[in-house]
Design a binder for these strands. Structure first.
Lengths: 207, 207
DNA sequence: TAGATTGTTAATCGATTAACAATC
DNA sequence: TAGATTGTTAATCGATTAACAATC
């Protein structure tokens, strides 16, 4: 088990391995070779072996990889042994949808609170989770040791709220606002409009 | 204006340039050098110049780039001159949120219809857009020359619906379902759970 | 003209792919 | 033992960064 720095490219393939393994297990497949797995995922067999060997030798020569074992290993690598707590800043359209998304809770990502500055919303609930005044956010993050802060506000307040979260000791930021946020903790961008632009770019060039 | 194949890495920086330029213009900045722009975006000045020169020489020696001109150029490169039509398959949580998202319409990405297989939903509207029976989707895409098909269904039907869309002549697929979809048109993945996993991975390793 | 900054070529770095000895 | 397939080193490829002549 080498423990060099793992490249971003490798990290972003891990969830895909995880999902593919899950699928294979569901279909009763007990072992798989790097070539088969690569084929199924549109990768190169060497790449699959290189990727996995960043974390350890999970395979067996002449046999391949035991799907259940590998699945378990990747689950551990992804840190899915424990739960992660989240707060969502901005109880609008996207924020509420994320709060309602079952996929997160199923996987151990639990929304602890929603925050908004709209007095009309504060006090009500989304999917059983209270909407609180955004002015209480910092203290809440501190008191509850929140892992992930999700930003779904207007552009003007996004950076400030991210700063507040970081000051309150949050572990990571997940940004849905179409603005570049600057923080010193892990940051994941999910800027929908950027994806739309990539699609329009490709559509426009195709002809 | 060289027209070699543009790498995926460059393409994914284009929306960021676009947003940053927009911001600069809003702040009254009329010109910017590659070093300043790189600084602001956390890139390397050479990279900025290389990226832009994939599409043409938009700058001027000794001066830099005129923000308005560059903004316009990138807008054109991204194909934002015209509107793009979308349909959304799956009127659940995420599908409805996307349908309500103002950012899309503002930028010229217009949702023409939502589709679902739940009889209780069919016939109602989200944000003024009709929810139709998913069995009518293929014909609708054909008749209305839809550009982008958004997939927000359960995992079991995602691949089939993507296939239907492609057969009906759709230009691109935008997939929100945590499953690897296989199509012969441009595909953009927005798998939320994958992002969550990347965050848990990084959180888990930090200590 | 001198200074600044581009556009572009060359050098470096890192990620992907190939090859093969190790070993189940 | 022979066949298969890994783990790992080496080769290739592509993307990022540096350097600098061109030019505004």
């Amino acid at each position: 088990m080498k423990d060099q720095r793992v490249s971003e490219a490798v990290i972003r393939r891990l969830p895909r391995y995880y999902r593919q393994l899950e699928l294979l297990i569901k279909n009763g497949v007990e072992r798989i070779s790097s070539s088969e797995l690569a084929e199924q995922m549109g990768l190169n067999p060497s790449q699959v072996r290189q990727d996995l060997n960043c974390f350890g030798g999970f395979g067996q020569q002449g046999y391949g990889y035991a799907t259940k074992k590998l699945y378990q290993e990747i689950s551990d690598i992804l840190g899915l042994k424990r739960e992660y707590s989240m707060v969502i800043a901005g109880a609008g359209n996207i924020g509420s949808a994320l709060c309602n998304y079952e996929g997160f809770t199923q996987r151990g990502f639990v929304v602890k609170a929603l925050f908004d500055n709209d007095q009309a919303k504060i006090g009500s609930e989304v999917n059983g989770i209270a909407i609180r005044d955004v002015s209480e956010m910092k203290q809440f993050v501190k008191d509850n040791n929140i892992d992930i802060g999700v930003i779904c506000t207007r552009r003007s307040s996004a950076q400030q709220l991210a700063d507040d979260m970081v000051e309150a000791g949050i572990g990571a930021i997940w940004n849905f606002v179409p603005i570049d946020i600057n923080v010193c903790v892990p940051l994941e961008n999910a800027q929908l409009i950027d994806s739309a632009f990539v699609l329009s770019f490709k559509l426009d060039r195709q002809d």
